[in-house]
Amino acid sequence: MSTQIEQQETETEGEEEETEPAVESPGDQRRATKRQRQAERDIQRETEEASLDDEETVSLKVFRYDPEVEGKQEPRFDDFTVPYHKGMTVLDALIYARDRYDSSLTFRHSCRQAVCGSDALFVNGRQRLGCKTQLSELDDPVRIEPLPHQEVVKDLVVDMEHFYDQMEAVEPYFDADELPADDLEEQRQSRENREKVKMSTRCIWCGACMSSCNIAAGDNEYLGPAAINKAYRFAMDEREGENRKQERLRIIEQEHGVWRCQTQFSCTEVCPKDIPLTEHIQELKREAVKNNLKFW
């Protein structure tokens, strides 16, 4: 964790330039009032948290950072105590803390059911989706941080642009060599082939795999597990045809493609949709070798 904080401190300087220059007033005034109000809320919160003594509670240690708010420009951890109930998830606890204690606590979330991929977080030292992680499975206190190896925008929100860029780099769209002439006639696909690509199509773009990958951390241009899995999804789909497959294999064989993977399985371990990412990468390596021998 210490390394991560250092990283963010340097980012702070860079990001300050992007924010509007400090206006003397009424901006400063506004911030001062808000600070005062926040202090009042803090007291209120302490009282509320103290009154939870008789209830079962869970303690959160949450990473906080905001490039433009005084007191948050230096990354820090805030403690929250929230009442616990059976079935409660990390996301539930964060929502409680935000709605009851500190409305500036910032994190992405939407569907609450592990399909939108918004809330991948670093919880007790591991990439997980907040919405499908039960608090009962975690040691107390629960330490919640943004995904490592990505630039922090604020609190638990990281910049996903690089992840999206890598996804787009593999031409992530179906592009068949040939389609049925009739608009009402579907392409045929065997059940076996659908089964083969099924797991790869489950990806929800949460970024947990990329964040867990040591190679991606060291090589910014590495396509990463999610993008390679996306390439797998199309390369293995029998409906696309041989020409397109050749182009796809060329893309993943590039310098920062499949050969960078050192099969450490960290991506596979953290994937919330249980996609066998490492296996898919290995299979593409084999396809690439077979393919190269064919043309040799």
């Binding site: 769209y173 179906f174 592009d175 068949a176 389609l179 049925p180 608009d183 009402l184 006639e185 579907e186 392409q187 045929r188 696909q189 065997s190 059940r191 659908r194 690509v197 099924k198 199509t201 199309f234 789909d237 409906r239 696309e240």
Partner: peptide, 20 residues
């Protein structure tokens, strides 16, 4: 036509034995 359009865009529909 919209459903078949999706299939032509690569949507991974569940399939019958005959591939439809």
């Amino acid at each position: 036509e919209e459903v078949i359009q999706l299939e032509h865009w690569g949507m991974p529909f569940s399939r019958e034995d005959d591939g439809r």
